[in-house]
């Protein structure tokens, strides 16, 4: 699904970062209007008991299906997105026996080529860290209540949907997919930054 937005749209975003860290300091999630700091995310997950740290950095692309994108902006239902991100992070940490995890997402204007999402995961061994990192990204893209507005060169803005195969095409199977709460790995694989 995609609906156009006028070129004057300004995203409604918080003026300062919204963060949540568990008391044990093993889980950190954040939505921020500021530039993402992947070094801080990596430092957060560093631990003497972890032999592996995996860092994913998603950066905004300059095209979608060969159409040139001029700028992007992210908006969010922040209270719900924070709950969702925290739940994804804690679930993945225990499922993969990982040591620490941080998920940080940008809100507001995000110039082309800049970081829109950072995920850092540490684990005792590399396999768990890789898997946890990949699953954290896919789950976030499938579930977190965050929306990307892509503005095309010389055109209007289009709200993207991660599970769309192509821009502006409505996905028909959504009624069976829990309305945006389910993961579709095949679709997402094409979209991953």
């Amino acid at each position: 699904m995609a609906t156009t937005e006028s070129s004057t749209y300004t995203p409604d975003i918080p003026s300062s970062p919204i963060t949540r860290t568990n008391p044990e300091s093993t889980v950190h999630v954040e939505l921020t209007p500021n530039s993402l700091d992947h070094v801080a995310a990596t430092s957060f997950v560093r631990s003497p008991s972890a032999g592996a740290t995996v860092l994913f950095i998603g950066t905004t692309r300059d095209s979608f299906n060969d159409l040139p994108v001029s700028s992007l902006a992210y908006t969010s239902y922040a209270p719900l997105a924070m709950t969702t991100l925290y739940s994804i992070a804690t679930t993945i940490l225990s499922k993969h026996g990982a040591t620490k995890i941080a998920i940080v997402h940008k809100l507001g204007e995000c110039p082309i080529g800049e970081e829109s999402i950072v995920i850092a995961v540490s684990a005792p061994h590399r396999q768990a860290a890789w898997r946890a990192g990949e699953e954290a990204l896919e789950e976030t893209k499938a579930k977190a209540e965050i929306w990307k507005l892509e503005r095309f060169v010389g055109g209007e803005g289009v709200w993207r949907a991660n599970r769309d195969g192509v821009m502006g095409e409505k996905v028909e199977e959504e009624k069976d997919q829990g309305k945006g709460t389910e993961m579709n790995l095949e679709d997402n694989a094409k979209e991953t930054s």
Binding site: M1, L80, I117, L137, A144, E145, W147, R160, A161, T192
Partner: peptide
């Protein structure tokens, strides 16, 4: 109440 369109983070 909130209306939640298909999401597009990342």
């Amino acid at each position: 109440v909130a209306i939640i369109p298909p999401v597009s983070s990342g």
